[in-house]
Write a protein that binds this DNA or RNA. Structure first.
Lengths: 232, 232
DNA sequence: CTGGCTCACTGGACTAGCCTCTTAGACAGT
DNA sequence: ACTGTCTAAGAGGCTAGTCCAGTGAGCCAG
């Protein structure tokens, strides 16, 4: 991955049929004004209408099930999940590919909280991992690199130190969004030295077990990084 | 759905083969110490080892792809996604089914922010939807109900009023978790009248476009509701 | 009216086969 | 030797056909 990413290239992942089907079915649900609890057409029927085999349609249905859009019941059919919002949100995300400000907003909300939790829950091992990340970043920068690996490690260490698997999963979600929207740079520091300095402030607050200062430092850090990114 | 849910019953969704396969493959990845970038065994091979057909295995792979665990490439194979953390987090969640405190924590973090955003971004239509939810809840309560539908509407209206699809999706994620962990009650008010009153405080702060008061009121509300739930 | 049975319909899963894509290695030509 | 081209093996993508297993409406006997 490293080389291709560095070159800005990315293996073009050919479209899979089931992915198209997901889109089409989502569109159908909306156009047909289907409400939660309603049934999708029978598999054999749908497959014929969409011009694909049942096996492929089955894949699309699995995807929709994992996404939480439908609930497939043996003998009954595919019923729309009680939360239609999920479908529309996913559709919305696919459409305008979540704009940058919203992602920054979500990220700062979560990471602010994570920093505060890390300050109150960190163990000595957590702190060691955080310090290690700082060292890695410092070494990278002195080598002329941008310190992206250290940056990544740092945020991962803080997430781990917060000891909240739910919030951690939400962060993983956002990280995925950032990748998907091809805004990898968002996770990277603008001016390396400046970024490292604000990392140190965060780490110090966590070391001192000061939740408010940690949250504040994290918010300032994200604002700094994001501002720089927005200028491009 | 309504009737069965009210009775605490739930249609036992028969296990699907592909779901078991997802678990097995996840376990295999861990046991085989596979790292990001590594390849899973070939489909034909894996299918034979697991004793299923390729078509079924393909469904499991689609599920893993949607979950962000792997990336299937035509002609090459299924490669582990660069973020193995996602897999382990998902696995962890499945195992200990995220304890209540963590979910409350995540929910209050997000909803506090959502309330603040709603206060600064709400349109008149948003406010109308919020007031409508309050009315529904009031009607339900005076009818002797617990006002769950109104409660749901209220939180949905606030999420919508915040105008942040990213945060909205994260909330949808948590809502799903709550459902999956069969802690539906978490989303419901403890003492209906008390809950309604704190909803009104939140709504007033949003009406006045006071972000800080809105966030504070929301946090107080969630604390109230959660405390009640924890006593059981 | 009730209980039990049947049958049409739904999804679940498998098999066999053919297509396209990727890649390593053989084999030329330089 | 190096380099470019070609080929074949092996990977996933997709289809068609078949059979199995739940679901539920409707019929019919008690």
């Amino acid at each position: 991955m490293e080389k291709t990413a560095r070159l800005g290239l990315e293996r073009v992942s050919r479209p899979r049929l089931y992915e198209q089907l997901v889109e089409q079915i989502l569109a159908y649900i909306e156009s047909a004004q289907l409400k939660p609890g309603d049934l999708l057409p029978a598999e054999r029927d749908l497959a014929e209408r969409l011009g694909v085999s049942r096996a492929t349609l089955a894949q699309a249905l699995v995807a929709l099930e994992v996404l939480g859009v439908i609930d497939v019941q043996h003998g009954t059919g595919a019923v729309l999940a009680r939360r239609p919002s999920v479908a529309s949100v996913i559709k919305g995300l696919r459409e305008h590919r979540s704009r940058l400000p919203e992602i920054v907003e979500a990220r700062s909300t979560l990471e602010g909280k994570l920093a505060a939790l890390a300050a109150s829950r960190r163990t000595d091992e957590d702190l060691k991992a955080i310090d290690h990340a700082l060292e890695v970043m410092a070494t990278e920068i002195s080598d002329g690199d941008r310190g992206t690996r250290g940056d990544e490690l740092f945020h991962e260490a803080i997430t781990a130190a917060a000891h909240s698997s739910v919030l951690a999963q939400l962060m993983a979600f956002i990280a995925e969004m950032i990748l998907e929207t091809r805004m990898e740079s968002l996770g990277q520091p603008g001016r390396p030295e400046q970024s490292l300095a604000s990392h140190r402030r965060i780490a110090d607050a966590i070391r001192d077990k000061d939740p408010e200062a940690a949250a504040e430092a994290m918010l300032a850090h994200i604002e700094l990084v994001s501002d720089v990114e927005l200028l491009r």
